[in-house]
């Protein structure tokens, strides 16, 4: 169970402010949906959570520790695309995380340890419903199967935090509902904290225990560069709204009802 605190976080590229003054605390085991219009910086925020980008100001604390400044196994990730390795079969993709941890020089396991890793990986693939496709390459899998594989690959490392960057955006509605069920079940089983960036408000409310919206408060053309997006509303999905700033929240909150 992992507590995440975001303190006074800013991200500035050159003279373009993308995010400003982001503050929130996340209770352990939450499922946070991050929503907002295109270009509002929600993916930038996720990349800072990953350690792929450094905040310009402020910090992110995980269980009281400042976030490592590069990606690490305590934060798993599933992207919309390119999340799995095309040259490895489904089974090899899932086993990779175990092999890397136990074999620093060769990155491969042999004998008994290999059989153990294989068994654990097969179990993981079974829990995302890919038992029939363990020896297929990603290019042979459908979009939904590829994303389930990416989830299995990330979860084999038992990350404290799982970061999802529009993971279901490219899926058909039926498939999407299926993957939602798997995601919710795994989230309950693994007790991790999840951050999911999405465009889809219904998805955000269906999965999330809390929905956080990023948006620009100042939108006049001459203000666009100097002011970035910030948290415009923050809603517990059981209905309690905690808007830190009233302006800008109204349209999104209305859309969410």
């Amino acid at each position: 169970m992992t507590k995440v605190v975001v303190e006074n976080l800013w991200k500035v590229y050159g003279d373009q402010t993308v995010l400003e003054n982001i503050n929130f605390e996340v209770a352990p085991g939450s499922f946070i949906s991050l929503v907002g219009p295109s270009g509002c910086g929600k993916s930038t925020f996720l990349r800072m959570m990953l350690g792929d980008e450094a905040p310009t100001r402020g910090r992110i604390l995980i269980d009281g520790e400042v976030l490592e400044d590069e990606p690490s196994p305590d934060r798993g990730v599933v992207f919309q695309k390119y999340s799995v390795f095309p040259h490895l079969t489904a089974l090899q993709n899932v086993m990779l995380g175990l092999e890397l941890a136990q074999s620093p020089i060769l990155g491969r396991l042999f004998g008994r340890r290999r059989r153990a890793a294989r068994a654990a990986s097969l179990e993981m693939l079974k829990s995302v419903g890919l038992s029939h496709a363990v020896n297929k390459y990603p290019a042979e899998l459908s979009g939904g199967m590829q994303q389930r594989l990416a989830i299995a690959q990330a979860l084999i490392k038992k990350p404290k935090i799982l970061l999802l960057d529009e993971p279901f955006g490219a899926l058909d509605p039926g498939i999407r509902a299926e993957v939602h069920e798997i995601m919710l079940r795994l989230w309950r089983e693994e007790k991790m904290t999840i951050f999911m960036v999405t465009h889809d408000l219904s998805e955000a409310f269906k999965l999330g225990t809390r929905v956080i919206a990023f948006d620009r408060v100042r939108t006049r053309p001459e203000e666009m560069k100097a002011y970035g997006a910030t948290v415009t509303f923050d809603l517990k999905v059981d209905g309690k709204s905690i808007p830190p700033q009233a302006p800008g929240a109204a349209p999104l909150a209305a859309a969410a009802q």
Binding site: V84, F85, H87, G97, L100, R108, K157
Partner: peptide, 27 residues
């Protein structure tokens, strides 16, 4: 090679050497 793959490998715990050996060279 998509940046996502390199990031993903790091979240799986790969070192630079392991990324070269298991992700980059085979591709």
């Amino acid at each position: 090679i998509p940046h996502e793959e390199i990031i993903k490998a790091q979240t799986l715990g790969a070192s630079t050497w392991q990324i070269i050996l298991r992700v980059v060279v085979p591709q």
